[in-house]
Design a protein around this nucleic acid. Structure first.
Lengths: 351, 351
DNA sequence: CTGAAAGCGCTAACAG
DNA sequence: CTGTTAGCGCTTTCAG
C-alpha cells in the first residue's frame, strides 16, 4: 500500500506492543510477582536486601505497572473527575490548575469535564463515574444544580466509595462536603468599604434569582446597608446574567434613567468591567463619579484602566483543601461539611 | 466512635460496594457473558431479539461496564492526556474546552495535566503514559521542547500504539502530527495592514529567542517589511517574555528612549495590552499616536478600551481536527503531518 | 519474610 | 448466532 509523503503512519501491528510486567521484574530479581507487588506498594514487610534487588530490576526494565490491572484488582483507580461549568472563565481555569497540582501531590490524576452550564451533562457524568471507578468527583459549578433529582445517584456513588466534593457552591446539606469562598461576609465588607468612603447610594448588580452564590452576595449587600441604617432602593438592585455584556447594558440603562448612585457593587468582575466600560463610554469618571467593586479577582482586573478593585479568590487555598480532604477520605477519616476560604479585598483604582 | 456533627463520614465498609457485572446482566437476559459483551461492543453478529433482551437487562440493572476490566483485557483505555503549558492562559483554556468536547464526541476522556512551563513534567508524563495505557497524548505548549532527548520515549510510545499529537507547535519533524495556527502568514498580514494604513515604522514585540512560535511570527514581520522594501531597525525589535508586565515595560522603555515608531505588532495579546497600557499611561492616543495589534484573540481584548485589534485563534477548529485525527488513527488510518488553521484578523479599535 | 494460587470483570478465540 | 474457555496484569489471601 502506498504511503503519502505528507502523512504519518498509524500505530504498528499489535504484536509489537510488548510491555514489561511484574513477572518480568520478578524473574529478573529472582523473586515472585507477589514480592514485586509488595515492594511497589511500599509495604515494609519485605527484607531490605530483597527490596533492593526488586527496585533495581524495576529500574533496569523501566517497569510501569499497568494502571488498569491495578484498578481492576483493587477495585478503585487513581482518577478524580473535575466537573467545571466553564473552563474558559478564569475562575475555573485557575481552580483547575491548582486542583490538578494539589491532587498530583497525592498521586491522583485529573479527568476534566467541561459542563458548559448544562445540567444533563452533570447527570451523565455522575452516571459514568461507576464505570470509570473514580476515586472522587469534584463539582466546581455555581449553576443551580437539581440536587433533588441527583441525590439518589450521589448517594449510590458515595456508597460505592466515591468521594464527592463541591467547590464554590454549598452542597453540604445533600451530604457533599463543600469548599467555598466567603460570599455574604465578603460582599458586606465591600459594601461597608464603599459606605466608609462616602460612596452611598450603592447599586447592586448580579444574577440573583438563578444563582445561589448571587443570593449569598446579595445578602451581604443588604446586611451592610441595614447595619448603616439605609433602606434598600429596589431601583438600584439590578438582576441580570453574569457576563460582561449584561454589565454594560445594566449600567447603560441606569444612566439613561438618570438613577442616582455613587457606586456599584457587582457580583462578578465581568459584570463590573462591563459596567465600567459603559460608564467610561459615557464620559463618567471611575471612581470619582462612580466607584466600582467586582467579585472574583480575575487576572485582567489589574490590567484594565482604571484597575478593578475586587474581592479576590484564593484558588490555591481551595486546591490545598481539596487535597487534604481527599487525603483524609482515603485514610478513612472524616472531613468538615464546610470549609470557608477567605476572599481578599483587592484595593486598586476603581474604588 | 463518636462522630462530630460538622463532619461527613467517609465511605462505608467495603462489602457494601457491590456493583453489577456482565454476569449479572447475562443471567437476567438468559444469555452468556460473551453475548452481553458483544452487544455492548455494538457488534452486529447478535440476533436482534437477543440484543433487545440484553439491552433490556442492561437498562434494568443500570449496568456500567468496568472500564478497568475493559482496558486490561483490550490493552487500551479510553483516555487521552492533554498537556498544556498553562491552563490559566485563555489560549489554553479555550483549547482545553474544545478539545475535551470534541474528544467526548468519539467517546474519549480527557486527562488534564498542567505543565506549568516545566520540561521535567513533560518527560514525567510521557513516562507515565505507558502505565496509564493512554489512547493518546496531545501536547499543547509553545515552550521549547527538548525533543532530542524525548524522541526515544516518544517513539516507544508510538510503537505501543499511543497516538501523539501536537497543538500550536510544529513537531512533525519528530514524527508528531501537528495542528497549528498559521503564524508567519498571519504576522505578515498584520504587518501589511499596518503598512497599508500608513503606520510605519512598525515595532515588533515578542519572545523571540526562546519561542519557536515567536520566531515564526517574527519571520512574517520581516517578510512584510522586506516586501515593502523597508529595512528592519533592530532598535524596534524587542525580545522579551510573553506576559503583560513585559509588554508594559518594553513600551515604557521605548518611550523613554524616544524611539520613533507609529505602530506595534505584538506576538501576544497580553504583551499588546501591557504595551497599550504603558502608552495610555503616558498620555499617548491609541491608535492615533501608536496603533497596536496583538496575537491570540483572548476574550478580554474586545472589552478593554480601546478594544484590541488582534490575530485571533480558532480553538474550535483545532478541537475538531484533533477529533478527526484520533478517529482516523483509531481506525488505523493516516493523518496529515501538519494541519494549518487560519487566524482571523479581528479589526477592532487599536489599529 | 516469601511463594503459590486465586480472581478482579471483561473480551477474544474457538467451538458448536 | 451463541456458549465455553482462557487470560489480560496485578494484588491479596493463605500457607509455609
Amino acid at each position: 500500500m502506498r504511503q503519502a509523503l505528507d502523512t504519518i503512519a498509524p500505530r504498528p501491528a499489535d504484536r509489537e506492543r510488548q510491555v514489561t510486567t511484574v513477572v518480568d521484574v520478578a524473574r529478573r530479581a529472582g523473586v515472585s510477582a507477589a514480592t514485586v507487588s509488595r515492594v511497589l506498594a511500599g509495604r515494609n514487610v519485605v527484607a531490605a536486601a530483597t527490596r533492593e534487588r526488586v527496585l533495581e530490576a524495576v529500574r533496569a526494565l523501566q517497569f510501569q505497572p499497568n494502571a488498569f490491572a491495578q484498578g481492576l484488582r483493587s477495585g478503585r483507580g487513581q482518577a478524580v473527575a473535575l466537573l467545571v461549568s466553564d473552563i474558559e472563565q478564569t475562575v475555573y481555569s485557575a481552580l483547575t490548575k491548582h486542583v490538578q497540582a494539589a491532587l498530583e501531590e497525592i498521586g491522583l490524576d485529573l479527568l476534566l469535564f467541561n459542563l458548559g452550564h448544562r445540567q444533563d451533562r452533570l447527570r451523565g457524568l455522575l452516571e459514568r463515574a461507576t464505570a470509570l471507578r473514580l476515586r472522587g468527583i469534584v463539582i466546581a459549578s455555581n449553576d443551580v444544580i437539581p440536587m433533588r433529582e441527583l441525590k439518589p445517584l450521589v448517594s449510590a456513588l458515595q456508597r460505592q466509595g466515591v468521594s464527592i466534593l463541591s467547590i464554590g457552591q454549598r452542597l453540604d446539606r445533600y451530604g457533599i462536603p463543600s469548599v467555598v469562598h466567603e460570599e455574604t461576609a465578603a460582599a458586606a465588607r465591600a459594601a461597608q468599604y464603599l459606605l466608609d468612603t462616602g460612596r452611598a447610594p450603592i447599586a447592586y448588580l448580579s444574577r440573583i434569582r438563578n444563582s445561589a452564590t448571587g443570593q449569598e452576595r446579595y445578602r451581604g449587600y443588604l446586611a451592610a446597608l441595614k447595619g448603616a441604617g439605609i433602606d434598600v432602593d429596589p431601583a438600584l438592585v439590578w438582576d441580570c446574567s453574569y457576563r460582561y455584556a449584561a454589565g454594560y447594558e445594566a449600567m447603560s440603562r441606569a444612566l439613561d434613567r438618570r438613577l442616582a448612585f455613587r457606586s456599584l457593587l457587582a457580583a462578578s468582575d465581568e459584570l463590573a468591567l462591563g459596567a465600567m466600560a459603559a460608564a467610561l463610554d459615557r464620559g463618567l469618571k471611575v471612581p470619582d463619579d462612580v466607584a466600582i467593586i467586582g467579585f472574583g479577582g480575575i487576572a485582567w482586573g489589574e490590567h484594565v484602566r482604571p484597575a478593578l478593585t475586587t474581592l479576590g479568590a484564593d484558588p490555591k487555598a481551595i486546591g490545598e483543601h481539596v487535597r487534604d480532604m481527599f487525603r483524609n477520605l482515603l485514610d478513612g477519616g472524616d472531613v468538615p461539611r464546610q470549609t470557608v476560604v477567605k476572599r481578599p479585598l483587592l484595593l486598586r483604582q476603581s474604588a
